[in-house]
Design a protein around this nucleic acid. Sequence first.
DNA 1: GAGTGGTCTAGACCACACA
DNA 2: GTGTGGTCTAGACCACTCT
Lengths: 236, 236
Amino acid sequence: MSEFLPRYARVRASLIERLASGEWAPGTSLPSEIALAAEMEVSQGTVRKAMDSLVADGALNRVQGRGTFVAEQTPELANFRFLRIVDGDGQRVIPELLSWTAKTEPADDRIAQDLSLKKRADLHRIDRIRAIDGTPALLETIRVPLGVMPGLGQPDAMPNALYPWYQSEHGVTVLRTDDRLRAVAADADAATALSVPAGTPLLECVRVAYDLTDRAVEHRISHILTNAHAFSVRLG
Amino acid sequence: MSEFLPRYARVRASLIERLASGEWAPGTSLPSEIALAAEMEVSQGTVRKAMDSLVADGALNRVQGRGTFVAEQTPELANFRFLRIVDGDGQRVIPELLSWTAKTEPADDRIAQDLSLKKRADLHRIDRIRAIDGTPALLETIRVPLGVMPGLGQPDAMPNALYPWYQSEHGVTVLRTDDRLRAVAADADAATALSVPAGTPLLECVRVAYDLTDRAVEHRISHILTNAHAFSVRLG
DNA sequence: GAGTGGTCTAGACCACACA
DNA sequence: GTGTGGTCTAGACCACTCT
């Protein structure tokens, strides 16, 4: 083990650990920079540098004069941060939930590999249909390892945005995702669910989501009808 | 005009201006932090903070012990930074150029709006076909305002990666892009060019590229055959 | 050894929020 | 007014590169 990290990196690691442990709840404030600096026996500037990187990663929010807060996933923010659906004018739209089912199943080899799990590890599986501007446009198959969210059984209710729910109900904060995008033809099931002819081009998004400890916490396959909308991305 | 910017922001703006003016060529080193601090009459820490943000934006590279360098677009880097095509195993692939044509045309209303140009402003237009693993898979229609790259006439040769060429030959450095992704059906022309049946699903990518002064410098419509490959994106 | 970026400190002052 | 984050400074020391 090499422990020759700069101090700000050790402060950062310590903060991540304490955030992941739930020591500070989402939306609440952290101790002040001066207090943390005293506690960790470093200067305020070093704490600041560590926090800068966590703010950049979206794990913390700072408000001048008020304090530093654990970033809270809200449906509005999470939707636009991770699922940037826009209409023809570039205006963001938010899909609404139409229907869903939930069950448990073992991971197939591909999913297990994507999520760095053992073969046939237990998964929660959720299938959802969502609508954009009133028409069904989004088919999602979501898989979450049982080990990541043991409490996610057969849910009573299903929220529209999942990431805020993961955070508030299961203590899992999604900070980033890796998405692989392709164009595919709608198969018979998808065509029925979306009320389009089989073969209609759909945008397929295969995503792995990671939490603040860089653990893979969700696998999601989305099929999106992009006749009137687009998936917006900023690169660079 | 509000000029009440913090000093590091003014230093950053000054550096961007001098980078855009070509005062420091791509790949060459800037004066040292100490020298710039003395010249601009601020402390080294302030120059450092300004440079931090430019490094984060990809405009500069720093190497400990050697100096700070103007980021140079290389075909390898530009390809993976802005066009992350991966195969089924997640390995990146680099398309190779098959054929191209170039001409000049006026902007239609949609393009003019996307590029913030006057209606019917003059554009260079380049059409290209590129292959992935030997099979045609990428159709691109590229439009660049004459005002942005006056020297881009009828080019003698066409490089595979355009952004390094924009930088070295036309002094334009692309730092970020906004992409809108959709799934569409191949029309007759696309189907012929890609040797697939009409109606085959293609990934459509409509992109606007911005330089380091946040000026829109390129409009690019790509149609990508994603039977064996995917467009990889990291969000968060 | 000289010069560069990288880290860290201690302290000053400013801008803002809240009681 | 008190406490918070935001900016800025001057200086110290370390790690690395090149000569």
